[in-house]
Design a protein around this nucleic acid. Structure first.
Length: 552
RNA sequence: UGGGGAGUCGCCAAGUGGUAAGGCAACGGGUUUUGAUCCCGUCAUUCGUAGGUUCGAUCCCUACCUCCUCAGCCA
Protein backbone atom coordinates (compact mmCIF):
# COMPACT_ATOMS: atom_id res chain seq x y z
CA UNK A 1 0.00 0.00 0.00
CA UNK A 2 1.56 3.24 -1.05
CA UNK A 3 -0.75 5.41 1.00
CA UNK A 4 0.30 5.24 4.63
CA UNK A 5 -2.92 6.00 6.40
CA UNK A 6 -2.73 7.47 9.84
CA UNK A 7 -3.70 4.90 12.44
CA UNK A 8 -7.25 5.43 13.55
CA UNK A 9 -7.85 6.77 16.97
CA UNK A 10 -8.92 4.20 19.51
CA UNK A 11 -9.31 4.07 23.25
CA UNK A 12 -6.02 2.25 23.82
CA UNK A 13 -4.04 4.82 21.88
CA UNK A 14 -5.79 7.50 23.87
CA UNK A 15 -4.64 5.83 27.09
CA UNK A 16 -1.09 5.50 25.80
CA UNK A 17 -1.04 9.10 24.66
CA UNK A 18 -2.05 10.07 28.18
CA UNK A 19 0.54 7.85 29.84
CA UNK A 20 3.28 9.24 27.65
CA UNK A 21 2.15 12.83 28.12
CA UNK A 22 1.95 12.50 31.90
CA UNK A 23 5.34 10.87 32.09
CA UNK A 24 3.93 7.69 33.57
CA UNK A 25 5.88 5.88 30.89
CA UNK A 26 8.79 7.05 28.78
CA UNK A 27 8.04 4.39 26.19
CA UNK A 28 5.73 1.44 25.88
CA UNK A 29 6.21 -2.30 25.97
CA UNK A 30 3.44 -4.62 24.78
CA UNK A 31 3.33 -8.32 24.21
CA UNK A 32 1.53 -10.88 22.11
CA UNK A 33 0.89 -13.88 24.41
CA UNK A 34 -0.48 -16.91 22.54
CA UNK A 35 -0.81 -20.34 24.05
CA UNK A 36 0.83 -22.86 21.72
CA UNK A 37 -2.26 -25.02 21.58
CA UNK A 38 -3.44 -24.33 18.05
CA UNK A 39 -2.85 -22.29 14.95
CA UNK A 40 -3.33 -18.55 14.93
CA UNK A 41 -6.45 -17.19 13.28
CA UNK A 42 -7.73 -13.88 12.02
CA UNK A 43 -8.70 -12.85 15.55
CA UNK A 44 -5.09 -13.26 16.59
CA UNK A 45 -4.09 -11.23 13.55
CA UNK A 46 -6.09 -8.37 15.03
CA UNK A 47 -4.27 -8.74 18.33
CA UNK A 48 -0.90 -9.02 16.62
CA UNK A 49 -1.51 -5.91 14.55
CA UNK A 50 -2.64 -4.09 17.67
CA UNK A 51 0.25 -5.07 19.93
CA UNK A 52 3.06 -5.00 17.41
CA UNK A 53 1.50 -2.04 15.64
CA UNK A 54 1.40 0.00 18.83
CA UNK A 55 5.03 -0.80 19.55
CA UNK A 56 5.95 0.30 16.03
CA UNK A 57 3.94 3.50 16.05
CA UNK A 58 5.16 4.58 19.47
CA UNK A 59 8.69 3.32 18.94
CA UNK A 60 8.29 0.92 21.81
CA UNK A 61 8.78 -2.81 22.04
CA UNK A 62 6.59 -5.84 21.66
CA UNK A 63 7.47 -9.26 23.00
CA UNK A 64 6.30 -12.58 21.73
CA UNK A 65 5.58 -14.67 24.78
CA UNK A 66 4.12 -18.13 24.83
CA UNK A 67 1.68 -18.80 27.60
CA UNK A 68 2.81 -22.38 27.96
CA UNK A 69 1.34 -23.30 31.31
CA UNK A 70 -0.89 -26.17 30.25
CA UNK A 71 1.39 -28.89 28.85
CA UNK A 72 -1.47 -31.22 28.10
CA UNK A 73 -2.65 -29.10 25.22
CA UNK A 74 0.53 -27.57 23.92
CA UNK A 75 2.94 -28.70 21.25
CA UNK A 76 6.08 -27.72 19.45
CA UNK A 77 4.26 -27.77 16.12
CA UNK A 78 1.91 -25.05 17.33
CA UNK A 79 4.71 -22.97 18.80
CA UNK A 80 6.61 -23.13 15.52
CA UNK A 81 3.59 -22.29 13.39
CA UNK A 82 2.79 -19.29 15.57
CA UNK A 83 6.26 -17.83 15.13
CA UNK A 84 6.09 -18.37 11.41
CA UNK A 85 2.69 -16.70 11.20
CA UNK A 86 3.77 -13.64 13.16
CA UNK A 87 6.82 -13.23 10.97
CA UNK A 88 4.84 -13.77 7.79
CA UNK A 89 2.39 -11.10 8.87
CA UNK A 90 5.36 -8.78 8.88
CA UNK A 91 6.21 -8.30 12.52
CA UNK A 92 9.38 -8.81 14.52
CA UNK A 93 9.35 -9.35 18.24
CA UNK A 94 11.78 -7.74 20.62
CA UNK A 95 14.78 -9.94 21.35
CA UNK A 96 14.23 -13.64 21.60
CA UNK A 97 10.99 -15.45 22.15
CA UNK A 98 9.77 -15.44 25.74
CA UNK A 99 8.02 -18.30 27.45
CA UNK A 100 6.01 -18.28 30.62
CA UNK A 101 7.88 -21.48 31.40
CA UNK A 102 11.07 -19.39 31.59
CA UNK A 103 9.57 -18.03 34.80
CA UNK A 104 8.56 -21.29 36.45
CA UNK A 105 11.20 -20.88 39.16
CA UNK A 106 10.25 -17.27 39.82
CA UNK A 107 6.62 -18.19 39.81
CA UNK A 108 7.25 -20.88 42.38
CA UNK A 109 9.16 -18.47 44.60
CA UNK A 110 6.46 -15.86 44.36
CA UNK A 111 3.95 -18.49 45.38
CA UNK A 112 6.06 -19.19 48.44
CA UNK A 113 5.99 -15.47 49.16
CA UNK A 114 2.21 -15.48 49.03
CA UNK A 115 2.07 -18.46 51.35
CA UNK A 116 4.37 -16.75 53.81
CA UNK A 117 2.14 -13.73 53.77
CA UNK A 118 -0.84 -15.90 54.52
CA UNK A 119 -2.23 -15.13 51.08
CA UNK A 120 -2.17 -18.61 49.60
CA UNK A 121 -2.96 -22.04 50.92
CA UNK A 122 -2.91 -25.64 49.86
CA UNK A 123 -6.34 -27.15 49.49
CA UNK A 124 -7.21 -30.80 49.02
CA UNK A 125 -10.89 -30.29 48.32
CA UNK A 126 -11.94 -32.32 45.31
CA UNK A 127 -12.91 -30.41 42.19
CA UNK A 128 -16.55 -31.20 42.91
CA UNK A 129 -16.32 -29.94 46.47
CA UNK A 130 -14.55 -26.85 45.32
CA UNK A 131 -17.34 -26.10 42.94
CA UNK A 132 -19.85 -26.46 45.74
CA UNK A 133 -17.88 -24.25 48.07
CA UNK A 134 -17.54 -21.63 45.36
CA UNK A 135 -21.19 -20.66 45.55
CA UNK A 136 -23.09 -19.26 42.58
CA UNK A 137 -23.42 -15.99 40.74
CA UNK A 138 -25.94 -14.73 43.26
CA UNK A 139 -24.76 -16.64 46.30
CA UNK A 140 -21.52 -16.15 48.19
CA UNK A 141 -19.15 -19.07 48.49
CA UNK A 142 -18.01 -20.72 51.71
CA UNK A 143 -14.51 -20.92 53.08
CA UNK A 144 -12.70 -24.17 52.58
CA UNK A 145 -11.86 -25.99 55.81
CA UNK A 146 -8.23 -25.69 54.72
CA UNK A 147 -8.33 -21.97 54.33
CA UNK A 148 -6.75 -21.18 57.67
CA UNK A 149 -3.98 -23.69 57.56
CA UNK A 150 -0.76 -22.27 59.00
CA UNK A 151 1.78 -20.87 56.49
CA UNK A 152 4.39 -23.33 57.67
CA UNK A 153 2.12 -26.23 56.87
CA UNK A 154 1.21 -24.76 53.52
CA UNK A 155 4.86 -24.29 52.74
CA UNK A 156 5.55 -27.91 53.53
CA UNK A 157 2.60 -29.15 51.51
CA UNK A 158 3.44 -26.94 48.54
CA UNK A 159 7.04 -28.16 48.55
CA UNK A 160 5.79 -31.72 48.59
CA UNK A 161 3.40 -30.97 45.75
CA UNK A 162 6.39 -29.82 43.77
CA UNK A 163 8.37 -32.86 44.86
CA UNK A 164 5.76 -35.13 43.41
CA UNK A 165 4.49 -36.64 46.63
CA UNK A 166 0.85 -36.29 45.66
CA UNK A 167 -1.25 -37.62 42.86
CA UNK A 168 -2.42 -35.46 39.98
CA UNK A 169 -5.36 -33.39 41.08
CA UNK A 170 -4.99 -34.35 44.72
CA UNK A 171 -4.57 -30.74 45.80
CA UNK A 172 -4.03 -27.23 44.56
CA UNK A 173 -2.52 -24.03 45.79
CA UNK A 174 -5.13 -21.33 46.10
CA UNK A 175 -4.91 -17.59 46.46
CA UNK A 176 -6.57 -16.52 49.68
CA UNK A 177 -8.77 -13.64 48.65
CA UNK A 178 -12.50 -13.56 49.32
CA UNK A 179 -14.99 -16.37 48.99
CA UNK A 180 -17.84 -13.89 49.16
CA UNK A 181 -16.62 -11.69 46.34
CA UNK A 182 -19.28 -10.88 43.76
CA UNK A 183 -16.51 -11.52 41.24
CA UNK A 184 -16.19 -15.28 40.91
CA UNK A 185 -12.55 -14.94 39.93
CA UNK A 186 -11.73 -13.61 43.36
CA UNK A 187 -13.21 -16.54 45.28
CA UNK A 188 -9.85 -18.06 46.18
CA UNK A 189 -8.82 -19.10 42.65
CA UNK A 190 -6.47 -22.03 42.17
CA UNK A 191 -3.04 -20.82 41.14
CA UNK A 192 -1.14 -24.12 40.99
CA UNK A 193 -2.28 -27.61 40.13
CA UNK A 194 -0.56 -30.98 40.06
CA UNK A 195 -0.28 -32.43 36.56
CA UNK A 196 2.27 -34.96 35.45
CA UNK A 197 2.51 -34.02 31.82
CA UNK A 198 5.47 -33.64 29.56
CA UNK A 199 6.07 -29.99 28.88
CA UNK A 200 7.43 -28.86 25.51
CA UNK A 201 10.10 -26.77 27.18
CA UNK A 202 10.68 -28.06 30.67
CA UNK A 203 10.09 -31.73 29.93
CA UNK A 204 9.36 -33.65 33.11
CA UNK A 205 11.06 -31.20 35.41
CA UNK A 206 7.80 -30.06 36.94
CA UNK A 207 4.69 -31.87 38.05
CA UNK A 208 2.98 -28.70 39.24
CA UNK A 209 2.00 -25.97 36.83
CA UNK A 210 0.87 -22.40 37.50
CA UNK A 211 -2.53 -21.23 36.27
CA UNK A 212 -3.06 -18.48 33.71
CA UNK A 213 -4.29 -15.72 36.03
CA UNK A 214 -1.35 -16.14 38.34
CA UNK A 215 1.20 -16.56 35.58
CA UNK A 216 0.19 -13.90 33.15
CA UNK A 217 0.42 -10.84 35.36
CA UNK A 218 3.75 -11.91 36.81
CA UNK A 219 5.16 -12.66 33.36
CA UNK A 220 4.05 -9.22 32.22
CA UNK A 221 5.67 -7.62 35.25
CA UNK A 222 8.93 -9.51 34.82
CA UNK A 223 9.11 -8.36 31.21
CA UNK A 224 8.34 -4.77 32.07
CA UNK A 225 5.20 -4.70 30.00
CA UNK A 226 3.49 -1.32 30.26
CA UNK A 227 0.20 -2.09 28.55
CA UNK A 228 -1.13 -5.61 28.78
CA UNK A 229 -3.80 -5.84 26.14
CA UNK A 230 -6.26 -8.69 26.01
CA UNK A 231 -9.81 -9.43 25.01
CA UNK A 232 -12.99 -8.54 26.86
CA UNK A 233 -13.62 -11.89 28.51
CA UNK A 234 -10.65 -11.16 30.76
CA UNK A 235 -12.15 -7.96 32.04
CA UNK A 236 -13.28 -9.47 35.30
CA UNK A 237 -9.92 -11.15 35.73
CA UNK A 238 -8.33 -7.74 36.02
CA UNK A 239 -8.96 -7.45 39.78
CA UNK A 240 -7.11 -10.73 40.19
CA UNK A 241 -4.31 -9.57 37.90
CA UNK A 242 -3.92 -6.53 40.12
CA UNK A 243 -4.33 -8.47 43.36
CA UNK A 244 -1.45 -10.78 42.55
CA UNK A 245 0.91 -7.96 41.65
CA UNK A 246 -0.19 -5.82 44.57
CA UNK A 247 0.67 -8.58 46.99
CA UNK A 248 4.05 -9.55 45.64
CA UNK A 249 7.43 -7.90 45.94
CA UNK A 250 7.45 -6.84 42.31
CA UNK A 251 7.77 -3.16 41.62
CA UNK A 252 6.52 -3.30 38.07
CA UNK A 253 2.77 -3.31 37.73
CA UNK A 254 1.56 -3.39 34.15
CA UNK A 255 -2.01 -2.29 33.46
CA UNK A 256 -4.40 -4.55 31.66
CA UNK A 257 -6.76 -3.19 29.00
CA UNK A 258 -9.39 -5.15 27.19
CA UNK A 259 -10.81 -4.82 23.70
CA UNK A 260 -13.56 -6.79 22.02
CA UNK A 261 -12.59 -9.88 20.11
CA UNK A 262 -13.14 -10.10 16.39
CA UNK A 263 -16.09 -11.97 14.99
CA UNK A 264 -15.99 -12.44 11.22
CA UNK A 265 -19.21 -13.28 9.48
CA UNK A 266 -19.59 -16.67 7.80
CA UNK A 267 -16.70 -18.14 9.71
CA UNK A 268 -15.64 -18.93 13.26
CA UNK A 269 -12.84 -17.58 15.39
CA UNK A 270 -12.61 -20.14 18.13
CA UNK A 271 -9.44 -22.17 18.36
CA UNK A 272 -11.33 -25.07 19.84
CA UNK A 273 -13.89 -25.15 17.04
CA UNK A 274 -11.24 -24.76 14.39
CA UNK A 275 -9.50 -27.75 15.96
CA UNK A 276 -12.79 -29.64 15.63
CA UNK A 277 -12.95 -28.85 11.92
CA UNK A 278 -9.45 -30.22 11.50
CA UNK A 279 -9.95 -33.29 13.68
CA UNK A 280 -13.26 -34.20 12.09
CA UNK A 281 -11.79 -33.74 8.62
CA UNK A 282 -14.29 -31.08 7.69
CA UNK A 283 -11.36 -29.24 6.15
CA UNK A 284 -8.00 -30.48 4.91
CA UNK A 285 -5.93 -29.13 7.77
CA UNK A 286 -5.16 -25.98 9.71
CA UNK A 287 -3.92 -24.31 6.55
CA UNK A 288 -6.88 -25.26 4.39
CA UNK A 289 -7.56 -22.11 2.34
CA UNK A 290 -11.10 -22.06 3.71
CA UNK A 291 -9.85 -21.72 7.26
CA UNK A 292 -9.69 -18.26 8.87
CA UNK A 293 -6.29 -19.23 10.23
CA UNK A 294 -3.35 -17.09 9.26
CA UNK A 295 -1.79 -20.08 7.50
CA UNK A 296 -5.10 -20.78 5.74
CA UNK A 297 -5.46 -17.20 4.57
CA UNK A 298 -1.85 -17.26 3.44
CA UNK A 299 -2.36 -20.40 1.41
CA UNK A 300 -5.47 -18.94 -0.11
CA UNK A 301 -3.48 -15.99 -1.34
CA UNK A 302 -4.30 -13.26 1.16
CA UNK A 303 -1.32 -10.96 1.61
CA UNK A 304 0.17 -9.77 4.90
CA UNK A 305 -0.40 -6.21 3.70
CA UNK A 306 -4.03 -6.97 2.97
CA UNK A 307 -4.63 -8.57 6.33
CA UNK A 308 -2.94 -5.68 8.10
CA UNK A 309 -5.07 -3.24 6.17
CA UNK A 310 -8.13 -5.23 7.19
CA UNK A 311 -7.10 -4.91 10.82
CA UNK A 312 -6.62 -1.20 10.41
CA UNK A 313 -10.06 -0.85 8.87
CA UNK A 314 -11.93 -2.73 11.57
CA UNK A 315 -10.34 -0.72 14.35
CA UNK A 316 -10.26 -1.51 18.04
CA UNK A 317 -13.05 -0.90 20.49
CA UNK A 318 -15.00 -2.49 23.32
CA UNK A 319 -18.29 -2.87 21.52
CA UNK A 320 -19.26 -6.22 20.11
CA UNK A 321 -18.43 -6.39 16.46
CA UNK A 322 -19.43 -8.80 13.78
CA UNK A 323 -17.35 -7.85 10.85
CA UNK A 324 -18.63 -8.20 7.33
CA UNK A 325 -16.46 -10.42 5.13
CA UNK A 326 -16.67 -7.63 2.54
CA UNK A 327 -14.27 -5.59 4.65
CA UNK A 328 -11.68 -8.33 4.46
CA UNK A 329 -12.28 -8.88 0.77
CA UNK A 330 -12.07 -5.17 0.09
CA UNK A 331 -8.72 -4.90 1.85
CA UNK A 332 -7.33 -7.94 0.04
CA UNK A 333 -8.56 -6.73 -3.34
CA UNK A 334 -7.09 -3.31 -2.82
CA UNK A 335 -3.66 -4.78 -2.21
CA UNK A 336 -3.84 -7.35 -4.98
CA UNK A 337 -5.23 -4.85 -7.47
CA UNK A 338 -2.03 -2.87 -7.21
CA UNK A 339 0.47 -5.70 -7.33
CA UNK A 340 -0.93 -8.74 -9.14
CA UNK A 341 0.05 -9.19 -12.79
CA UNK A 342 -2.87 -9.85 -15.14
CA UNK A 343 -3.05 -13.10 -16.97
CA UNK A 344 -5.81 -15.11 -18.61
CA UNK A 345 -7.39 -18.33 -17.41
CA UNK A 346 -10.52 -20.14 -18.50
CA UNK A 347 -12.23 -22.16 -15.83
CA UNK A 348 -15.32 -23.33 -17.67
CA UNK A 349 -14.19 -23.82 -21.28
CA UNK A 350 -16.33 -23.59 -24.38
CA UNK A 351 -14.68 -24.30 -27.71
CA UNK A 352 -14.68 -21.63 -30.39
CA UNK A 353 -13.60 -22.11 -34.01
CA UNK A 354 -12.64 -19.01 -35.90
CA UNK A 355 -13.68 -19.67 -39.44
CA UNK A 356 -11.79 -16.80 -41.04
CA UNK A 357 -8.56 -17.04 -39.05
CA UNK A 358 -6.37 -16.74 -42.16
CA UNK A 359 -4.15 -13.68 -41.83
CA UNK A 360 -4.83 -12.94 -38.19
CA UNK A 361 -1.95 -11.66 -36.04
CA UNK A 362 -1.08 -11.65 -32.38
CA UNK A 363 -0.50 -8.71 -30.09
CA UNK A 364 1.33 -8.05 -26.89
CA UNK A 365 -0.42 -7.15 -23.70
CA UNK A 366 0.68 -5.46 -20.49
CA UNK A 367 0.79 -7.49 -17.34
CA UNK A 368 -0.86 -4.60 -15.57
CA UNK A 369 -2.92 -1.80 -17.09
CA UNK A 370 -1.55 0.81 -14.67
CA UNK A 371 1.99 -0.52 -14.39
CA UNK A 372 3.79 -0.78 -17.73
CA UNK A 373 6.95 -1.60 -15.76
CA UNK A 374 5.46 -5.01 -15.01
CA UNK A 375 6.26 -5.81 -18.63
CA UNK A 376 4.25 -7.49 -21.34
CA UNK A 377 3.83 -10.79 -23.08
CA UNK A 378 2.55 -12.08 -26.40
CA UNK A 379 -1.09 -13.06 -26.42
CA UNK A 380 -1.29 -16.37 -28.28
CA UNK A 381 -3.97 -16.67 -30.90
CA UNK A 382 -5.05 -19.47 -33.22
CA UNK A 383 -8.13 -20.70 -35.03
CA UNK A 384 -9.27 -22.81 -32.10
CA UNK A 385 -10.03 -21.01 -28.86
CA UNK A 386 -11.68 -21.62 -25.54
CA UNK A 387 -13.77 -18.95 -23.96
CA UNK A 388 -15.68 -18.97 -20.71
CA UNK A 389 -18.95 -20.83 -21.21
CA UNK A 390 -20.60 -18.21 -19.02
CA UNK A 391 -19.68 -15.58 -21.57
CA UNK A 392 -22.06 -16.97 -24.16
CA UNK A 393 -25.83 -16.97 -23.97
CA UNK A 394 -28.26 -18.07 -26.65
CA UNK A 395 -31.01 -16.13 -24.99
CA UNK A 396 -29.25 -13.26 -23.30
CA UNK A 397 -30.84 -11.55 -20.31
CA UNK A 398 -31.49 -7.81 -20.47
CA UNK A 399 -28.30 -5.82 -20.25
CA UNK A 400 -26.11 -8.66 -21.53
CA UNK A 401 -22.82 -7.40 -22.91
CA UNK A 402 -21.19 -10.68 -23.75
CA UNK A 403 -21.42 -13.06 -26.69
CA UNK A 404 -24.66 -14.22 -28.21
CA UNK A 405 -25.61 -15.75 -31.54
CA UNK A 406 -25.20 -13.11 -34.22
CA UNK A 407 -23.66 -10.73 -31.74
CA UNK A 408 -20.20 -9.26 -31.49
CA UNK A 409 -17.77 -9.09 -28.66
CA UNK A 410 -14.20 -7.92 -28.19
CA UNK A 411 -11.69 -10.66 -27.57
CA UNK A 412 -9.51 -9.16 -24.88
CA UNK A 413 -6.28 -7.84 -26.40
CA UNK A 414 -7.40 -9.08 -29.80
CA UNK A 415 -10.06 -8.86 -32.47
CA UNK A 416 -13.75 -8.19 -32.43
CA UNK A 417 -15.50 -11.48 -33.00
CA UNK A 418 -18.98 -12.42 -34.17
CA UNK A 419 -20.73 -15.65 -33.37
CA UNK A 420 -22.19 -17.12 -36.55
CA UNK A 421 -23.25 -20.56 -35.52
CA UNK A 422 -23.97 -22.57 -32.38
CA UNK A 423 -23.22 -26.27 -32.32
CA UNK A 424 -25.01 -28.49 -29.82
CA UNK A 425 -24.84 -32.08 -28.77
CA UNK A 426 -27.73 -34.55 -28.76
CA UNK A 427 -28.97 -33.12 -25.46
CA UNK A 428 -29.09 -29.62 -26.81
CA UNK A 429 -26.10 -28.50 -24.85
CA UNK A 430 -23.91 -25.91 -26.53
CA UNK A 431 -20.56 -27.55 -27.24
CA UNK A 432 -18.98 -25.32 -29.81
CA UNK A 433 -19.26 -21.94 -31.41
CA UNK A 434 -18.35 -21.00 -34.98
CA UNK A 435 -17.22 -17.43 -35.10
CA UNK A 436 -15.58 -14.95 -37.41
CA UNK A 437 -13.31 -12.08 -36.57
CA UNK A 438 -13.28 -8.60 -38.00
CA UNK A 439 -9.74 -8.28 -39.32
CA UNK A 440 -9.93 -4.50 -39.17
CA UNK A 441 -10.34 -4.36 -35.40
CA UNK A 442 -6.94 -5.31 -34.03
CA UNK A 443 -5.94 -2.44 -31.81
CA UNK A 444 -8.79 -0.28 -32.99
CA UNK A 445 -12.50 0.06 -32.72
CA UNK A 446 -14.75 -1.10 -35.54
CA UNK A 447 -16.22 1.64 -37.68
CA UNK A 448 -19.84 2.57 -37.48
CA UNK A 449 -20.77 0.44 -34.49
CA UNK A 450 -19.96 0.04 -30.83
CA UNK A 451 -18.92 -3.27 -29.32
CA UNK A 452 -19.45 -3.00 -25.60
CA UNK A 453 -18.55 -6.48 -24.38
CA UNK A 454 -15.05 -7.79 -23.78
CA UNK A 455 -14.38 -11.43 -23.03
CA UNK A 456 -11.19 -13.35 -22.36
CA UNK A 457 -10.03 -16.41 -24.28
CA UNK A 458 -7.16 -18.81 -24.65
CA UNK A 459 -5.71 -20.38 -27.76
CA UNK A 460 -6.21 -24.13 -27.42
CA UNK A 461 -2.82 -25.12 -28.73
CA UNK A 462 -1.00 -22.66 -26.46
CA UNK A 463 -2.96 -22.94 -23.22
CA UNK A 464 -1.77 -25.04 -20.31
CA UNK A 465 -4.05 -27.23 -18.26
CA UNK A 466 -4.30 -26.23 -14.60
CA UNK A 467 -6.16 -27.29 -11.52
CA UNK A 468 -8.09 -24.38 -10.18
CA UNK A 469 -9.60 -24.46 -6.72
CA UNK A 470 -12.56 -22.21 -6.23
CA UNK A 471 -13.29 -21.31 -2.64
CA UNK A 472 -16.47 -19.99 -1.20
CA UNK A 473 -17.49 -19.17 2.35
CA UNK A 474 -17.03 -22.04 4.79
CA UNK A 475 -20.47 -21.67 6.34
CA UNK A 476 -23.91 -21.00 5.00
CA UNK A 477 -24.96 -18.64 7.76
CA UNK A 478 -23.29 -15.49 9.00
CA UNK A 479 -23.00 -16.63 12.61
CA UNK A 480 -22.49 -20.39 12.52
CA UNK A 481 -21.84 -20.76 16.22
CA UNK A 482 -24.41 -18.32 17.54
CA UNK A 483 -26.96 -20.98 18.44
CA UNK A 484 -25.68 -23.13 21.29
CA UNK A 485 -28.24 -25.84 20.56
CA UNK A 486 -27.07 -26.36 17.00
CA UNK A 487 -23.77 -27.93 16.06
CA UNK A 488 -21.95 -25.50 13.80
CA UNK A 489 -21.05 -28.42 11.55
CA UNK A 490 -24.65 -28.30 10.38
CA UNK A 491 -23.95 -24.99 8.74
CA UNK A 492 -20.89 -26.08 6.78
CA UNK A 493 -21.18 -24.98 3.17
CA UNK A 494 -21.01 -28.08 0.95
CA UNK A 495 -19.85 -25.86 -1.89
CA UNK A 496 -17.03 -24.19 -0.03
CA UNK A 497 -14.57 -25.88 -2.38
CA UNK A 498 -15.00 -26.60 -6.08
CA UNK A 499 -12.06 -28.07 -7.92
CA UNK A 500 -12.03 -27.42 -11.61
CA UNK A 501 -9.70 -28.42 -14.45
CA UNK A 502 -9.20 -25.31 -16.50
CA UNK A 503 -6.58 -23.64 -18.65
CA UNK A 504 -4.10 -20.87 -18.15
CA UNK A 505 -1.81 -18.80 -20.28
CA UNK A 506 1.54 -20.44 -20.94
CA UNK A 507 3.51 -17.55 -19.38
CA UNK A 508 2.50 -18.86 -16.01
CA UNK A 509 4.14 -22.23 -16.55
CA UNK A 510 7.13 -21.74 -14.27
CA UNK A 511 5.50 -19.64 -11.59
CA UNK A 512 6.87 -20.36 -8.14
CA UNK A 513 4.57 -21.39 -5.33
CA UNK A 514 2.69 -18.52 -3.73
CA UNK A 515 2.72 -16.44 -6.89
CA UNK A 516 -0.30 -14.22 -7.23
CA UNK A 517 -2.10 -13.29 -10.41
CA UNK A 518 -5.26 -11.66 -11.44
CA UNK A 519 -7.04 -13.91 -13.88
CA UNK A 520 -8.78 -11.23 -15.85
CA UNK A 521 -12.48 -10.93 -15.23
CA UNK A 522 -12.37 -13.87 -12.79
CA UNK A 523 -10.51 -12.82 -9.69
CA UNK A 524 -7.22 -13.08 -7.89
CA UNK A 525 -5.50 -16.44 -7.73
CA UNK A 526 -2.42 -17.79 -6.01
CA UNK A 527 -0.34 -20.85 -6.79
CA UNK A 528 -0.80 -23.37 -4.01
CA UNK A 529 1.97 -23.56 -1.42
CA UNK A 530 1.75 -27.30 -1.13
CA UNK A 531 0.53 -28.79 -4.38
CA UNK A 532 1.63 -26.48 -7.15
CA UNK A 533 4.69 -27.58 -9.12
CA UNK A 534 6.47 -24.94 -11.20
CA UNK A 535 6.83 -26.30 -14.70
CA UNK A 536 4.69 -29.27 -13.76
CA UNK A 537 1.27 -29.62 -12.27
CA UNK A 538 -0.18 -26.15 -11.99
CA UNK A 539 -2.49 -25.55 -9.05
CA UNK A 540 -4.19 -22.25 -8.36
CA UNK A 541 -6.32 -21.18 -5.43
CA UNK A 542 -8.91 -18.51 -5.92
CA UNK A 543 -8.12 -15.88 -3.33
CA UNK A 544 -11.10 -13.64 -4.00
CA UNK A 545 -13.26 -12.81 -6.99
CA UNK A 546 -13.23 -9.45 -8.67
CA UNK A 547 -15.95 -7.07 -7.65
CA UNK A 548 -18.84 -7.71 -9.97
CA UNK A 549 -21.45 -5.10 -10.68
CA UNK A 550 -23.17 -7.31 -13.22
CA UNK A 551 -26.23 -8.69 -11.50
CA UNK A 552 -27.06 -12.17 -12.71
C1' U B 1 -32.80 -11.45 40.56
C1' G B 2 -24.84 -10.90 41.96
C1' G B 3 -20.39 -8.83 39.46
C1' G B 4 -18.17 -6.88 35.03
C1' G B 5 -18.92 -4.77 30.04
C1' A B 6 -21.40 -2.78 25.52
C1' G B 7 -25.36 -0.11 22.77
C1' U B 8 -23.51 6.15 17.04
C1' C B 9 -25.72 4.64 9.08
C1' G B 10 -26.51 -2.39 6.23
C1' C B 11 -21.04 -3.79 8.57
C1' C B 12 -16.92 -1.54 11.22
C1' A B 13 -15.75 3.12 13.73
C1' A B 14 -14.28 8.50 15.45
C1' G B 15 -16.29 12.23 18.31
C1' U B 16 -17.61 12.77 24.70
C1' G B 17 -20.91 19.93 26.39
C1' G B 18 -21.10 23.77 20.94
C1' U B 19 -24.62 21.71 17.22
C1' A B 20 -22.71 13.72 13.89
C1' A B 21 -15.15 12.16 10.96
C1' G B 22 -13.66 8.16 8.09
C1' G B 23 -13.61 3.18 5.92
C1' C B 24 -16.39 -0.99 3.79
C1' A B 25 -20.95 -1.93 1.37
C1' A B 26 -24.85 0.26 -1.52
C1' C B 27 -26.73 3.60 -5.21
C1' G B 28 -26.28 7.27 -9.36
C1' G B 29 -22.84 9.37 -13.32
C1' G B 30 -18.00 9.58 -16.21
C1' U B 31 -13.52 6.99 -18.26
C1' U B 32 -12.29 1.97 -19.73
C1' U B 33 -10.17 -3.67 -25.19
C1' U B 34 -11.06 -6.65 -17.38
C1' G B 35 -19.33 -5.48 -16.32
C1' A B 36 -12.21 -4.73 -12.72
C1' U B 37 -9.42 -0.42 -11.60
C1' C B 38 -9.83 4.88 -11.61
C1' C B 39 -12.76 9.52 -11.18
C1' C B 40 -17.15 12.44 -9.59
C1' G B 41 -21.56 12.47 -6.71
C1' U B 42 -25.43 10.49 -3.10
C1' C B 43 -25.84 7.93 1.54
C1' A B 44 -27.42 9.41 10.26
C1' U B 45 -31.91 16.95 11.57
C1' U B 46 -29.60 11.97 14.31
C1' C B 47 -26.30 8.96 18.30
C1' G B 48 -30.91 1.96 22.58
C1' U B 49 -35.61 4.29 25.15
C1' A B 50 -37.92 7.89 28.44
C1' G B 51 -37.28 11.87 31.48
C1' G B 52 -34.00 15.77 33.64
C1' U B 53 -29.79 19.63 33.95
C1' U B 54 -28.09 23.42 30.32
C1' C B 55 -28.52 29.06 26.06
C1' G B 56 -27.07 24.36 23.95
C1' A B 57 -26.33 17.07 25.26
C1' U B 58 -24.40 11.53 21.30
C1' C B 59 -21.39 13.60 25.25
C1' C B 60 -23.63 15.31 32.28
C1' C B 61 -27.75 13.14 35.74
C1' U B 62 -31.91 9.54 36.64
C1' A B 63 -34.75 5.42 35.34
C1' C B 64 -35.62 1.71 31.99
C1' C B 65 -34.70 -1.70 27.68
C1' U B 66 -31.49 -4.95 24.87
C1' C B 67 -27.08 -7.72 24.09
C1' C B 68 -22.33 -9.87 25.77
C1' U B 69 -19.53 -12.02 29.81
C1' C B 70 -18.15 -14.77 34.72
C1' A B 71 -19.59 -20.39 38.85
C1' G B 72 -12.14 -24.94 34.58
C1' C B 73 -7.45 -27.99 39.22
C1' C B 74 -8.34 -24.08 30.40
C1' A B 75 -6.16 -19.76 28.41
Amino acid sequence: MNSTPVAASNFIRTIIDGDLASGKHASIVTRFPPEPNGYLHVGHAKSICLNFGLAQDYQGKCNLRFDDTNPEKESEEYALSIQEDVRWLGFAWEGSVHWASDYFDDLYNFAVELINKGLAYVDDLSPEQMREYRGTLTQAGRNSPNRDRAPADNLDLFARMKAGEFADGAMVLRARIDMASPNMNMRDPAIYRIRRAHHIRTGDQWCIYPMYDYTHCISDALEGITHSICTLEFEDHRPLYDWVLDNLSITCHPRQYEFSRLELQYTITSKRKLLNLVNENKVLGWDDPRMPTISGMRRRGYTPEGIREFCRRIGVSKSTNNVDMAIMEGAIREDLEARAPRVVAVINPLKVIITNYEGATEREADFHPQHPEFGKRRVALSSTLVIEADDFAEVPPAGWKRLTLGGEVRLRHSYVMRCDEVIKDADGKVIELRCSIDHATLGKNPEGRKVKGVIHFLSCQHALPAEIRLYDRLFTVSEPDADKDVNFFDYLNPESLTVVQGFVEAVVQDAATETRYQFERLGYFCTDRRDHQPGGKLVFNRTVTLKDSWIK
